[in-house]
Write a protein that binds this DNA or RNA. Structure first.
Lengths: 108, 108
DNA sequence: AATAAGTGCAATTATCTGGTTGCGCAAATT
DNA sequence: AATTTGCGCAACCAGATAATTGCACTTATT
């Protein structure tokens, strides 16, 4: 039962963003994650479920513990969406550069 | 009364992302925007309010019409947040490149 | 075998969210 | 002057969300 989730909705929650940042570099268990926040383990578990539903996390069971880690490649989707704007803000920057260059020229 | 808003929560809604994309290249009025979606002008107005509260849009009044446009520079904040992960996925890619290169070498 | 530890799931609840409808106000049109 | 147009705001409502609590299951420890 794979519910399709939106990655943008997934990163909307600040706790979830913090979890993402934590498991980006090393796999962690729900208990270990919960210690970083002022919430219960079950709350963390729900966040992880949401992250799983949009394929943002991988899991590896070791005995009774489950280690969750980030699927970093999935984060590219956000980067891909940003691409359409990246061109625009770079253009704006170049135009600003030109303006500054012109001002500099006039000063001389 | 400037309520502090989260840009990540702002882009969580698909309609809002569509609005952002539309006003990225040209300023538009709420009425013109509403025609692009299956919602009322008032609903669009609420979305714009949220986008305004996190400084994502600029407005320019012309008579009784208000033209809204995207503050593209603000979008960099998302890009900045992505930076911490960009390093990671690029490293992963390089490592994959190495593996592929090694495999290619062994074939020869 | 009994207990403790780690986990996910279900039920519940307060709050947030996105939408509609009905205003009131200012600017344009008649 | 009267009407139309474009707009934001407030009230309201159904559905989503994030958190807690209680439970059942599996795996380790005693």
């Amino acid at each position: 039962m794979e519910i399709r989730r939106d990655i943008f909705q997934a990163i909307a929650d600040p706790t979830r963003r913090a979890i993402i940042a934590l498991i980006a570099t090393q796999a962690m268990t729900p208990n270990a994650l919960a210690e970083h926040f002022h919430t219960s383990r079950q709350a963390v578990s729900k966040h992880i479920k949401i992250l799983t539903e949009c394929d943002l996390v991988k899991q590896e069971q070791q005995g009774r513990e489950i280690y969750y880690s980030l699927d970093i490649q999935k984060m590219k989707e956000i980067d891909k969406w940003l691409d359409q704007f990246r061109k625009l803000w770079e253009t704006q920057f170049n135009q600003l550069d030109e303006v500054l260059a012109t001002l500099k020229k006039q000063k001389k």
